[in-house]
Design a protein around this nucleic acid. Structure first.
Lengths: 238, 238
DNA sequence: ACCATTTCCGTACGTCGTACGAGAATGATG
DNA sequence: CATCATTCTCGTACGACGTACGGAAATGGT
């Protein structure tokens, strides 16, 4: 318990993390940094998935002892929040509102999607908890600015942003799962075989028909854009 | 490796789980059942959350040895899929299409939301993997029937259902998180304090304003309905 | 009576997050 | 420069997890 202003990452409030001032005047000098540890964790997750992010792996990646990490983040959940905010720093914060708030909102969603495709673990990490780090907040600020012309009240604007983010995360998660399934033909074949059995049992005529009608191959991008347009275009109808 | 038709739960294909015929003619009689184990796991998750569902806890809840569970499900992930399909059995399968497919689709979404509120671990369990058990398929069949009047092709109908489910899961997850936050005033106060600091730093004018404008208190139900309407009402605009 | 088959489950292994606390490094103070 | 409080480093250890292994027990077919 160091009171406020210490650089250690303990504290009751999760938010207190983002408020820690950076340099204590006494004591041993830190050999690592929150930044480098977070970056290593992100690189690990990008390369091998979120499950590969263990305290031991991150520590060895960064050349530290395992327990040293706990000087920079009080627990693993916090480290993941740091990761989320870290990659959120890749989101452009400039690009002020154009006046067409629908277009602005769609552009924002596309930025989020691109980020999540670049860091496929992000939707899963977001589903655990909402982070409120500086980069996340900067992007939120941009989204709120874009929503200004709607005249919505504060709570509604925040709600729209949360909903939009949730929508993008859900879509990208699905998109990634599809891509992964397509990459392992054995799994895909097994599922197809199973569905064929179900379709043949006579109790699922609609499913049978849906599977029989091929439907044109649509890029994930196109599907995303279509649903996004539907959601955003309906946004001011109360 | 028992070939096909055995009651053990092994097999390369995850789907094979749902195809296992139930009674092998030889060997010791099972002391438990997939059903009772799954039900115990569901009860546990309902009462203490998904993290409380460990093989040891489920086994002790059901009066079995830990390793006995593996005669009924090949691994924990499969057990969770069983749980998902189990609670999906609570979804009414009757209630044929009324002809107004938008209303039907909205009703379906409301049913899903109610189910997820009753089993708050469900959104998290769904985010891991899509299950295709008999109850899930029965409900999918109903949704496809409701979508028939749209004239969408098979792939598009499946996509719409996946998207709708994802939307509901995302919304309910958010809803549950909000409710949990509201129930622990300390956390809420900490977050409010933190946001106040951020709002006061001058770099987040939009956020400051959004927080200042109170906005009427809207029930989660109302918010859900609003977003759902937006999504569904835009659905046939190509 | 025998045996193939299936289930039951105690034991054990490797991995995880992380509590503890001893040692090393540092800046402030005399 | 000596002391000391402070801060960081990290080896060790603990409990909990998923689950592989394999022997014991039960069952139905022969």
């Amino acid at each position: 318990m160091t009171g406020d202003g210490g650089s250690d990452a303990s504290g009751v409030d999760p938010q207190e993390l983002w408020l820690t001032s950076d340099r204590p005047r006494r004591g041993r000098k830190p050999a690592f940094s929150r930044e480098s540890i977070t970056a290593a964790a992100v690189a690990l997750a990008d390369a091998e998935g979120l499950d590969a992010v263990t305290m031991r792996r991150v520590a060895s990646e960064v050349g530290a002892g395992v327990m040293s990490l706990y000087s920079y983040a009080p627990d693993k959940a916090t480290l993941i929040e740091l990761m989320v905010d870290h990659v959120s720093g890749e989101l452009p914060v400039s690009g002020a509102p154009t006046g067409d708030w629908r277009a602005d909102l769609k552009a924002i969603a596309h930025l989020q999607r691109a980020l999540m495709l670049r860091h496929p673990w992000l939707p899963a990490a977001l589903s655990t908890r909402r982070s409120l780090g500086p980069h996340t907040l900067a992007f939120l600020e941009r989204a709120l600015a874009a929503l200004r012309p709607t005249g919505l009240d504060g709570a509604a604007k925040l709600e729209v942003f949360a909903q939009l983010t949730g929508f993008v995360a859900g879509h990208v998660a699905h998109e990634i799962a599809q891509a992964a399934a397509a990459r392992s033909p054995e799994r895909a074949a097994a599922e197809a075989r199973y569905l064929a059995v179900v379709a043949a049992d006579g109790h699922h005529p609609e499913l049978a028909e849906a599977l029989a009608a091929p439907g044109r191959a649509l890029t994930p991008e196109a599907t995303f854009t279509r649903f996004l347009n539907r959601l955003v275009d309906g946004l001011d109808s109360d």
